[in-house]
């Protein structure tokens, strides 16, 4: 019983934390420099991971769609099929999960370490709002970076699909992309990409929350990092279900 109560209290605290992030994020002054720094750390430095993963996913999906499409003699639909799968769901979700690993663990560990070495207190002591300086900047950077990285993954995914296709049929790149975008609507691309801002918010907020509330020294830092990844991944997948439903509701 007390376990449930304390768990619920934890959820409430996390929710309040998230609410505070939202409230503080829109209020100036903005920590532009710090946000830029995180955009570099979280965004630019995730580019190789996302690009490589996207490419691999594209190749693999293309091979899979080929084998099933070939059964119906519908090889011509491979680029379009890959594009739909990638842009609507796979791109956003895979980037979200990969980044919850990379970014979530990073933020959790970094803030956790800052917490246990009193750097957060030190920030406060020099009259800096640590919440705005550490948490809001990361969340904002993450919210900006996610859709951009998702776009990158979509692109490298299609590129991978093209390579897999070109190796078999020698299709030119331009033709591939034109065919791929054949069935894509704005309502496929825009909501699916923008929904990753929510993923970004979840990843950074969960990781920050767990990082800032780290206790028990170095051991706690590792714990915060692990829990960041697990919690944000699960939350991300669950939220995705709601978001997809919502998008389908708004754009039937």
């Amino acid at each position: 019983m007390t376990v449930v109560v304390s768990w619920l209290e934890g959820v409430a605290r996390a929710a309040r934390f998230a609410g505070r992030v939202l409230a503080e994020a829109v209020r100036p002054p903005f920590e532009g420099r710090e946000t830029l720094r995180h955009l570099y750390e979280l965004g630019v430095r995730s580019v190789p991971l996302i690009a490589a993963a996207g490419f691999a996913v594209g190749v693999v999906l293309s091979m899979h769609t080929r084998s099933s499409m070939a059964r119906f003699g519908a090889e011509a639909l491979i680029p379009a099929g890959l594009a739909i799968v990638l842009i609507r769901e796979t791109g956003p979700l895979v980037s979200g999960l990969l980044l919850s690993g990379r970014i979530g663990a990073g933020i959790g560990a970094e803030l956790g370490a800052m917490k246990v070495t009193e750097q957060i207190d030190a920030l406060e002591a020099v009259a800096v709002d640590s919440f705005r300086y550490l948490v809001v900047t990361r969340v904002v950077a993450c919210v900006i970076a996610l859709p951009l990285l998702t776009t990158l993954m979509n692109f490298t995914g299609l590129l991978g699909g093209w390579v897999a296709e070109a190796l078999i049929t020698g299709m030119p790149l331009g033709t591939y992309f034109r065919q791929a975008f054949q069935p894509i609507q704005f309502t496929d691309l825009v909501p699916a990409t923008l929904k990753t801002t929510v993923f970004g918010f979840i990843i950074a907020t969960v990781a920050s929350y767990l990082g800032v509330h780290t206790t028990r020294g170095t051991e706690g830092v590792g714990l915060a990092s692990t829990r960041s990844v697990v919690t944000s991944s699960i939350l991300l997948i669950a939220t995705n279900v709601l978001l997809v439903r919502l998008i389908q509701f708004v754009y039937p």
């Binding site: 859709p147 776009t151 990158l152 992309f177 975008f181 894509i184 609507q185 704005f186 691309l189």
Partner: peptide, 9 residues
């Protein structure tokens, strides 16, 4: 890239 996607659509 995103804009290019939008443009293609």
């Amino acid at each position: 890239l995103f804009a290019a996607g939008l443009f293609m659509i």
